[in-house]
Amino acid sequence: MTRTRKLQALLGTSLLKLFIALTAIFLILFLYVIFSRGGKMINWEFLTQSPRRYMTEGGIFPAIIGTFWLTVLSIGFALPLGIFTAVFLTSYARPSWLVRIIRVSINTLAGVPSIIYGLFGLTVFVQFFKFDVSLLSGALTLGVLAMPVIINASEEAIRSVPPDFREASLALGATERQTILRVILPTALPNILTGTIISIGRVAGETAPILFTAATFYTRLLPTSVMDEVMALPYHIYALMTEGSHAAKQVPIAYGTAVVLLALVLLVSTVAIIIRYRLRKKKKW
């Protein structure tokens, strides 16, 4: 009996190890393929030049700039809304049907497929507000998509501020608003920001929401206003793989673009994770 029990335990544990090893092997293969094939594309010209000859030559500079602006504008739009919502939910909201609806909405928004965000952006920003296919429409669409992530990160960060801080501040005669702005938010801010940075990775990498709202296949020009169409790194990869007729020349460029995008996303998230790790170690309360 003990022997079968031990055998079972051994088999089970080995199975778990096999599963995690398979995951790791795939991940390593995936990263190796992308970085080994795309890495050799990366040079100064690739990063700073515009595409030439229907994207079979030249660099990806406009796509880098496009992704930069899409990300900055969308986070700039979503961050204040997200933090305010989190403040409301943690500090002001009393249990009520309205608060429940808000929560269900946030959870639903977090699960809505990104392509549906794309259609929403098309209907509301492109058509209804007549922003057309533009940086602005794309950034707003991505901002809406990032909102639930930012709300959840902020709420968690605010909730991890010990209640004593709040009570101490209120007991000293500060108002609710002063307590939130001077005690709670500053304490929670590093955690809010690390959560937000992780959502930046998501925004920068999204393709489906900008397909019909912001992205253009090919432009040599950089955006001069928020009403311009832009190139973007993720869309550029997709376009290189599915449009045009020089696959042999386009695929390597797609790999190169993927390296830039992956490096950006992984770098930004790694920084966030390291900061968070340090914060947790340093935390005194």
């Binding site: 991940l27 995936f30 393929v33 992308i34 094939r37 992780i198 990775g201 998501r202 920068a204 990498g205 999204e206 393709t207 993720p234 869309y235 990869i237 997709y238 793989m241 695929v251 797609a254 790999y255 993927a258 995008l261 992956l262 996303v265 992984l266 998230s269 790694t270 994770i273």
Partner: peptide, 16 residues
Amino acid sequence: LLAGIPSVVYGLFGMA
């Protein structure tokens, strides 16, 4: 980190 890898890069890996 894995969760943050853009889906289009997965798509590229699948296609190419």
